[in-house]
Amino acid sequence: MFEARLVQGSLLKKILEATKDLLTEATFDCSSTGMSLQAMDSSHVSLVSLMLRSDGFDAYRCDRNLSMGINLTSMTKIIKCSSNDDVVTIKADDNNPDTVTFMFESPNQEKVSDFEMKLMDLDTEHLGIPETDYSVVVKMPAQEFQRVCRDMSQIGESVTICCTKDGIRFSASGDLGTGNIKIAQSANVDKEEEAVVIEMQEAVTLTFALRYLNFFTRATSLSGQVSLSMSPEVPLVVEYKIADMGYMRYYLAPKIED
């Protein structure tokens, strides 16, 4: 028996929005620790990693480990049938292993819907992600990062991110010319969410495909802040924390000189 109840049901809409450009299907792994998902995009350039800890749910029961192969397009159709203030419960029954049920309850309990969705048999590969001490970790407002990625993609297909202790510089070039956006570390901020904080061991310069960075920024509604972790010659980690529950992380392989 698996049952996970989320009063803030709209969170699932945000999570699906945050994966839609990268994934069409994925396996949700459910265990007593929580629900997680790890999947590469179809071109194997990036990796999506979602963690929703069991203690972040309003009720959670998972008697045995369970892998649910889910067509995310189908799940999106079903989750769209919920209202933003609905309580969502995800259920899977051991006697019926080929389906998952989504139950939506209106806050006043007057409307209750349930949708049963067929599961898929997915042959997914899990990648082992090594623990890494990153040379640079930048925390910045998620909306600011979204804006930078959008603006840089007006200029070129790639962005070079250069991070020093003074700030983070995004540069792009293309047929029309070049663009640079430099964001300094905040001197002092009233609101933590508006801060730009740079933790640095050594300066790093890396180049990434803007197409993917723009896909990642679909997660902006999940968190006020985003963190960018970088080390020379390894994938960038873009992390959006999901309050009191876990995270949505994206790993993006860098562009490397031929």
């Binding site: 590469m40 350039v45 899990h126 990648l127 992600i129 180049t207 390894v234 392989a253 562009k255 031929d258």
Partner: peptide, 14 residues
């Protein structure tokens, strides 16, 4: 032109 690397080049299949 720099080339796009593959993510599984960095993270091994478990």
């Amino acid at each position: 032109m720099p080339k796009q690397a593959n993510i599984s080049h960095y993270f091994k299949v478990r």
